[in-house]
Design a protein around this nucleic acid. Structure first.
Lengths: 355, 355
DNA sequence: CTGAAAGCGCTTACAG
DNA sequence: CTGAAAGCGCTTACAG
């Protein structure tokens, strides 16, 4: 029983049409009527219902966002990016958490569909979700972010994960490492698969065969990383370096090191995917592949906002650049050729990339 | 032009009432009609509109959540807690980011009000927002979380910040520290004020006067913490320990230490509010006051869910317990009395609190 | 400059 | 077991 527009109209002695128009500034109104309406609104404490308005206008001003893990700071930064441009376009967000769970994702997609969001940002878990079709059928623009799905040809904003990972592993190789373990994510997620592919690519370029014993796949979480890294570090022939394929797994690997009493970079070098505030505070500060996370979010949201206004979405992928941020966690080379020259090269490259 | 219930009804040769009822399972229907309806739904690809339904039933099944910083992992954990119980009660979330900005908060509150959420979780920034009144006027239950506002008597779920901070500072004092700097947040936020109060209380208990030079207030962010800690550490008479009053400021303080080449705990001891995954991986692992963050979220959401079902909200504050997690970052005492006995005491207390 | 009225897509007494 | 019809609270041609 909140106040409705009719109450305001009655008190102001006008029609609901007039109230609607002054509130929305959608047609000229006599200054005196306007004032009377506004007074009534204030006195009655009228707050228009967006749900009634949404039904009538068929526009909800809302974007749906389905993410796989809201606790992962990577996704949080993404959300901030999306949110900032959404707000600039007076769009608001329904943020949902799929937890990498196909069923949860489906539930949320159904919900978002029912809520009649005007655009969708989606991070697919594994194969494409059938529930994406109804969005397209209803003319709701959908944009993939961070990951892609094999059977899904939708506009995408993200990063070249193969290339980013390749660069990281090459860096390790340049440092002299030859036994490089990978803490990889589940292969159903495209980013995990691509980063692993980048690892393989780098080794191949150096004429090295990938040793399957050095590859451990796990859930992209702290625990998954800890377990995978723990396995790797327990190997009889321990790897001299670890490449961890996301921020949470990096944390997990550090935990595993701590537990085993292994020091980084003296005992194992470490290079991770994803940067974070804490990465530069760790001892040693972590060498990482940085993604332009916030920008991925803003880019996606910007495209969506335009699509809602009728513009076409780009057909293919929008790929932003990763940056290898060289810090101290993989300084000491494996065993061979650790020349002064190389150290100098790293240093300069570091300064270059950070700024 | 999505499919609507009338289309389904037509195709199935029934009334919209029947379609509605089979879809909602709200009255017995002949099995054959039921099947015909369901077939039509599938064939047409019908997805009911929650906005039409919301208008008609006056229930949106949605909770509003206004947080001050979604990038802060503390709030993210909170959201997870809220989300999990919301989902269990088939409620969904509108998560908004106030950024500690009164205007942004107001915009979002207005939005949530318009969207006719059925409950609100709110973290006030400073003084209470006038916009909370309309929620109450509309009978929408509101619950404060994490912080309180002086002029706001609403149900609250959080932690006893005075007590938590006091305990941390006492720990520092027991370790022999006498010059303890505080990296405090902005005093307009209740948690900041209370944690500072806890600091003062601890000193007072030990008969120590609070030296205003040792208190620095700043924005509760990494940068705010870095600046405040930087100031403190640049003091001619440098504090032997720092108490940082939230997780972001702790990170900032660590940055400041790194920049000044100061080692923890040898040069400065450190104790922070808020625990995190990375806190135990740092070298040294960080001594912190842990909040039951996730539980704060679930508790608040649970209360809200009940309130929506008609139960009364608790009148006062629901205070959950903090735990001092003793790790290595404040081991070395200030200068005096660092006895073996005390070290033993810490150790045993540590094991006790962690498990 | 303003109002009467239709209609957005559902649900739900009411009636049979 | 099922349907006709009203109504949720807005906006928006249309008419004057």
């Amino acid at each position: 029983m909140p106040i409705k527009i009719r109450d305001v109209a009655k008190r102001a002695g006008v029609s609901t049409a007039t109230v609607s128009h002054v509130l929305n500034g959608t047609r000229r109104t006599a200054e005196t009527t306007r004032a009377r309406v506004l007074d009534s609104v204030r006195e009655l404490g009228y707050h228009p219902s967006a749900v009634a308005r949404g039904l009538r206008t068929k526009s909800t001003g809302t974007l749906g966002v389905v993410l796989s893990d809201i606790r992962n700071p990577f996704f949080t930064d993404l959300v901030r990016g999306i949110e900032d441009v959404a707000q600039a376009n007076s769009l608001n967000l329904f943020v949902c958490n799929s937890d990498e769970d196909e069923d949860k994702a489906e539930t949320y997609l159904r919900l978002l569909l029912a809520k009649r969001v005007e655009g969708l940002v989606f991070t697919p878990t594994g194969r494409a979700n059938v529930l994406l079709d109804p969005f397209l059928a209803m003319g709701i623009p959908v944009i993939l972010i961070d990951r892609i799905a094999p059977d899904l040809s939708l506009p995408f904003v993200g990063v070249d994960n193969v290339q980013g990972a390749r660069e990281a592993v090459v860096h390790l190789l340049e440092d002299g490492h030859r036994r490089i373990g990978v803490v990889a994510g589940l292969p159903t997620v495209s980013t995990s698969a691509h980063r692993l592919e980048g690892y393989r690519l780098a080794l191949a370029e150096w004429g090295l065969a990938a040793d399957s014993a050095l590859i451990r796949e796990g859930h992209s979480s702290v625990q998954g990383g800890e377990e995978a890294a723990g396995d790797l570090l327990a190997l009889a022939q321990r790897p001299t370096a670890l490449f961890t394929t996301n921020n949470l797994m990096t944390l997990g690997a550090l935990k595993a090191c701590a537990k085993l009493g292994l020091h980084c970079p003296d005992d194992v070098a470490l290079c991770g995917f994803d940067d974070h505030e804490w990465a530069e505070i760790f001892s040693p500060p972590l060498t990482v592949v940085r993604q332009p996370t916030y920008e991925i979010g803003t880019t996606a949201a910007r495209l969506l906002a335009r699509a809602i206004h009728g513009e076409a979405l780009p057909a293919g992928a929008v790929l932003l650049k990763t940056h290898l941020i060289i810090r101290a966690s993989c300084r000491p080379g494996g065993h061979e050729d650790k020349s002064e020259k190389e150290a100098g090269k790293q240093q300069s490259r570091s300064t270059h990339t950070i700024t």
